[in-house]
Amino acid sequence: MAAPMTAFSPDKLHSDRERWICIYPAYINSKKTLAEGRRVPKEKCIENPTYQEIRDVLSAAGMKVGVENKLYSRERSKEMLYRGRLRVQLKDDSGAPLNPDFPTRESVMLHVCSMIPKLKSRQGKPSAEQSGPSKTSQPSTSSKKKGKGRR
């Protein structure tokens, strides 16, 4: 098991988990406002990402990723769906980026935003606009109303 987290120390190396960047799903959630913790422009964000999707994308990009069972402090809901924080190693011990494509925290988040819609788990889901109105309009036309009813 990994060593417990401690307070920041400049003596720590970039390879120590304490120095890895943190990413919460709320940072890239299009449903959130800036005040609720979104950190990426709304046009580039995705709807309700999960930590599993972010982990899959970053692992596929070859980055070192760690998952922690943490809740974002600005998150109102305490449900398990919103839990999860990712730690990502950006730099090696010399301070140089591990991957030149991702030198900053923002570049990592933008990459995640562009790749999550391409995941197979996101491809199979029908959107609510396509399936919603057709199902709700059918029962309303076939039901018979008897007037005002009993009071």
Score class of each variant (00 low, 15 high):
residue 3 A to N: 07
residue 11 D to P: 05
residue 13 L to K: 14
residue 15 S to D: 02
residue 19 R to A: 01
residue 20 W to D: 08
residue 20 W to V: 00
residue 22 C to L: 14
residue 24 Y to I: 00
residue 25 P to Y: 01
residue 26 A to S: 02
residue 28 I to H: 06
residue 28 I to M: 14
residue 29 N to Q: 04
residue 29 N to A: 10
residue 30 S to Y: 02
residue 30 S to R: 07
residue 35 A to C: 13
residue 35 A to G: 12
residue 36 E to S: 08
residue 38 R to L: 10
residue 39 R to V: 03
residue 41 P to H: 11
residue 45 C to N: 05
residue 48 N to A: 06
residue 49 P to Y: 09
residue 49 P to V: 13
residue 51 Y to W: 03
residue 52 Q to H: 14
residue 52 Q to T: 15
residue 52 Q to W: 11
residue 53 E to M: 14
residue 54 I to P: 01
residue 54 I to K: 05
residue 58 L to M: 15
residue 58 L to G: 00
residue 59 S to D: 11
residue 60 A to P: 00
residue 61 A to Y: 09
residue 62 G to D: 04
residue 64 K to S: 08
residue 67 V to D: 11
residue 69 N to C: 03
residue 71 L to V: 13
residue 72 Y to H: 15
residue 73 S to I: 13
residue 74 R to H: 09
residue 79 E to L: 15
residue 79 E to P: 04
residue 81 L to S: 04
residue 82 Y to A: 07
residue 84 G to P: 00
residue 85 R to Y: 03
residue 88 V to L: 05
residue 89 Q to T: 09
residue 91 K to D: 13
residue 93 D to F: 10
residue 94 S to P: 03
residue 96 A to N: 10
residue 100 P to Y: 10
residue 102 F to M: 15
residue 105 R to L: 13
residue 106 E to Q: 09
residue 108 V to W: 06
residue 109 M to I: 02
residue 114 S to I: 13
residue 116 I to M: 03
residue 119 L to S: 10
residue 119 L to Y: 01
residue 120 K to F: 10
residue 124 G to S: 15
residue 125 K to H: 12
residue 127 S to Q: 05
residue 128 A to W: 09
residue 129 E to L: 05
residue 133 P to Y: 04
residue 133 P to E: 00
residue 135 K to E: 15
residue 141 T to L: 13
residue 142 S to R: 13
residue 143 S to Q: 15
residue 143 S to R: 15
residue 145 K to P: 14
residue 150 R to Y: 12
